[in-house]
Simulated assay, not measured.
Amino acid sequence: MTTTVPALPAGLVERPLTMADARAVYEVMAADQLDQIGMIEIEEADIVGDWGRPSFDVEAQTLGVFDSDRMVGYAEVTYADRGDAAVHPAYRGRGIGTRLAHWMQETARARGARLVGMPVPEGSAGDRLLEALGYHVRHTSWVLKLPAGAEIVRRDLPEGYAVREARPEEWPAAHDVVEDAFLEWSVRERESYDDFVASIQGRPGFEPWNLRVVLDPEGVVVGVSYVVIAETDDGRDAEAYISRLAVRRDQRNRGLAQALMVDSFAVAREHGALVSGLSTDSRTGALDLYKKVGMEVTSVWLSRAIDLV
């Protein structure tokens, strides 16, 4: 199936991006999120870390829209069937979002994908646009925060288990735990170990304590948490964010995930974070777990996708 990709409005130009454009992408995404949900949930380091994966070809998988030298919109196909996009609020209503959506479809189709989608805040301009373009909802996601000053109650581990910073030789096992857990409900290709390492170590500000593990009595990695501290430039408190949290299937229902979570938040607080956050979605069934430790939903996102065949 082929589609006609809408042209850009007069006066705007587009081009593939490079790593040097990461800051401009962040600024567009931050402006879009601040306007849509009243807060910024992206950091420039997130973009640099994602784009630094060996499997990601920045120039082939991104597109920027510019008004003179100013970036006003961007899109990327991050994986075969998933991407992201944003348009600066001052430039909405000019067809830029539609143009970017069609570019994402064509790029994903050329890479062999059968569908492509992206997350959008529920009820936002992006949500309404994708719905109008025929995108369906794949799942719902929630961003949750543990407010500043909230008590972090440590969860005792079962006898013989321990939680600590991952050692270098434990990284391959940590990768396996994360991918095995995520692929139980996520329909995608398995992330390579090289991409896993690059997205973590290549993220600006990385420190070894960011990757946490739970070890069973035999010293085997059975749980993993990856927590970072978001460096804010909009006056917000520094925030700890868990971007990956996983426990091996046969080790669940023992309190390991909760122990990892409170450990990650506590260690991040020791490193200056005042607020703690993470996200989960309707495929995991973990929302109630996070609410039990005092976390509050701050925004709701929909993963919308469209069939390409």
Rank of each mutant, 00 (worst) to 15 (best):
M1P: 15
T3V: 12
V13E: 14
A22T: 15
A24K: 15
A24N: 13
Y26L: 08
A31G: 12
Q33C: 07
L34R: 15
M39F: 13
I42M: 11
E43S: 13
A45P: 00
D50P: 02
G52I: 03
P54Q: 12
L63V: 11
A80L: 13
R82C: 09
G83V: 13
A85I: 12
R92E: 15
A101H: 04
A101I: 10
T107P: 02
G112T: 08
G117H: 07
M118S: 12
G123R: 04
G126H: 06
G126N: 06
R128L: 11
L129C: 08
L130V: 06
E131S: 13
E131T: 15
H139A: 06
W142C: 02
A148H: 12
A150Q: 08
E151Y: 02
I152Q: 00
V153A: 14
R154F: 03
D156C: 05
R164H: 09
P168M: 11
A173V: 04
F182Y: 10
L183W: 01
D195Q: 07
A198C: 06
G202K: 04
G202V: 05
G202C: 05
F206T: 11
V213G: 01
V213Q: 01
V214W: 00
E218C: 03
G219S: 07
V220F: 03
V222G: 01
V222A: 09
V224M: 07
A230D: 14
E231A: 10
G235L: 09
L245E: 06
L245R: 02
R252Y: 09
L256D: 00
A259M: 10
D263F: 00
S276R: 04
G277W: 04
T284S: 15
A286G: 05
A286D: 04
A286Y: 02
D288Y: 05
L289K: 05
K292Y: 02
G294W: 08
G294C: 07
G294A: 06
E296L: 08
E296S: 02
W301I: 11
S303A: 09
V309C: 06
